[in-house]
Amino acid sequence: MAWYVVKLILMLALLGGMIWGSLWLTKRLQGRFVPAGRTKAARLIETTMLSPGVKLAVIEFHGREILVGSSRHGLTRLAEAEARPPVEPEDA
């Protein structure tokens, strides 16, 4: 009986490790498999958490910056503007 419990604990630990590893690998490799010569049409610039379940996000899409509100009920476009050129960090 003790051997069964030990095997069960080891298998649960192995299964948990495999689940954690697959989630970590998926997160790490996400978005890396873009076909050669193609660029992504949309790019996430910034997100801000307003409250639990409510976020603001700025998305760049075809030369435009779109401010989107995200909640449990869906996405809402709040504003749109021309994309700003990237800011170069100043050398100290």
Rank of each mutant, 00 (worst) to 15 (best):
I59W: 05
V58S: 06
R64A: 09
V34N: 00
A36V: 04
T47I: 11
E60R: 14
T47H: 02
L44D: 12
P35E: 05
L12V: 10
L44N: 09
I66W: 04
K27E: 10
P86Q: 02
H62V: 02
A92D: 13
P52F: 06
F33C: 01
A57C: 04
S70M: 13
L15G: 07
Y4C: 04
L23Q: 13
A13Q: 05
M11R: 10
A36P: 00
E88M: 14
A79L: 12
S71G: 13
H62I: 02
A41M: 14
I45L: 15
E90Q: 15
L8Y: 09
I9M: 09
M18A: 14
V6K: 04
L78F: 03
Q30L: 14
Q30E: 15
L78T: 07
P85N: 03
L50I: 15
W3E: 15
L75W: 11
V34T: 03
L8A: 15
T26I: 05
A57F: 06
E46T: 08
F61V: 07
G63Y: 12
G17Y: 09
L56T: 01
M18T: 12
E82V: 10
S51I: 01
A92N: 06
F61P: 00
I9W: 08
W24D: 10
P89H: 06
P52S: 05
A36K: 03
P86Y: 01
E65L: 05
M1T: 06
G21S: 14
H62Y: 07
P89E: 10
S51F: 03
L25M: 10
M1C: 04
L75D: 02
G31T: 02
E60V: 00
R77N: 08
G31L: 02
G21F: 11
P35I: 01
E80F: 00
P52Y: 04
Y4H: 09
G53Y: 11
L12G: 04
L78D: 02
T47G: 05
R28Y: 12
I59T: 02
L56N: 10
R38D: 01
I9H: 07
E88K: 14
K40W: 14
D91W: 13
L14D: 06
G21L: 11
K40L: 15
G16W: 12
L15P: 00
R72A: 15
F33A: 03
L14T: 08
P35V: 00
V68N: 02
I66S: 03
P89G: 03
F61D: 04
P35H: 06
